[in-house]
């Protein structure tokens, strides 16, 4: 067996296949498909589970096929919206501001949960010695993702207002990447304290996924605007209207809608506008996360 000649042939063939496969792939028809994604503030499997009935509902309302792509990076969602790889995205307050900036102000927030107009973050710990924000000095601390509103930006902003600089005053700062991961970090003692969004905390407590005898809330932030559903600015206005109406029509009295709302942890959806997030933008500048 002569390996060199065999190998040459094989490689020639392989190269030919590679080139062929470039052309053979079908062009994706994106006309009748609504491409949706969400910032991965919880485990992707959880996001998919939460989205399934809402996706079906949106399919019925728009007559389009709805495709949900789970991701593991906040910034990738923003970038995908800006490069028109997705049409509709579930964004946090800060990721919305980032998307607004990266699309030159064209991204449109269409709806938010009633809860998002007065959202809060919870500071949690399993260390009995930590009773207030001031006790965090010299401790290891876990944020969520760096570009999370409720897991990074707003807590950082309020910590600053309390006279604490995370980079200087904490022993180590970690980014767990997601809210439920922050709870896991703190419960396991990987970080001495952490911060996460109130909605996920309540959900974990209700579903008994966290041992509240061990992990407790020791501070809560003042309220601020958070999550919304955002579409890219160059989407057909008729479709934008359809999507907005679809969200606003969700009625807790309707059992089918109730399931969707429950999974989204929303009492109901309300209209929102860009100006709601100006406060977040200012906080981001103040905290040095926007330059």
């Amino acid at each position: 067996m002569n390996f060199s000649s065999m190998r040459r042939l094989a490689l020639k063939a392989a190269a030919a296949c590679a080139v062929a496969s470039l052309f053979a792939l079908p062009a994706t028809a994106s006309d009748a498909v609504l491409r949706v994604s969400a910032i991965p503030d919880e485990a992707p499997t959880e996001l998919q589970r939460k989205f399934a009935p809402l996706g079906k509902y949106l399919e019925a309302q728009t007559g389009m096929k709805v495709v949900f792509t789970p991701v593991s990076d906040y910034a990738a969602v923003v970038e995908s919206l800006a490069t028109r790889k997705i049409d509709l995205a579930w964004l946090g307050g800060f990721t919305f501001v980032q998307a607004k900036i990266r699309t030159n102000g064209t991204a449109i927030p269409i709806a938010q949960r009633e809860e998002d107009a007065k959202f809060t973050s919870k500071f949690i710990t399993a260390d009995p010695a930590i009773k207030s924000l001031a006790d965090l000095k010299g401790k290891t601390f876990a944020f969520g993702a760096p570009s999370s509103t409720s897991g990074s930006l707003m807590p950082r902003f309020f910590l600053q207002q309390a006279g604490l600089n995370p980079e200087k005053d904490f022993k180590n700062v970690a980014f767990s990447g997601a809210h439920d991961a922050t709870v896991a970090f703190v419960a396991a003692g990987k970080a001495e304290a952490g911060v996460l969004n109130a909605s996920v905390w309540d959900k974990l407590v209700e579903s008994k996924k966290v041992d509240t005898d061990k992990v407790r809330v020791f501070a809560t932030t003042p309220p601020y605007f958070d999550y919304n559903w955002t579409v890219r600015g160059d989407l057909d206005p008729a479709l934008v209207k359809k999507l907005t109406d679809a969200f606003l029509k969700l009625d807790p009295a309707n059992p089918e809608h109730k399931e969707i709302l429950a999974l989204q942890r929303a009492a109901k959806f309300i209209p929102t506008k860009k100006e709601n997030y100006d406060g977040i933008e200012k906080a981001a500048h103040a905290a040095g996360l926007l330059k």
Binding site: M1, S5, M6, A10, A13, A14, A18, S21, L25
Partner: peptide, 27 residues
């Protein structure tokens, strides 16, 4: 020098490559 064994190997390599690209479905 090119026997059935090497032909088989070449085919496997080829099939593997095609399958990889198909599976990943990279646009």
């Amino acid at each position: 020098p090119f026997g059935p064994r090497s032909a088989l190997l070449a085919l496997t390599l080829l099939a593997g490559t095609v399958a990889s690209f198909r599976f990943l479905n990279i646009g």
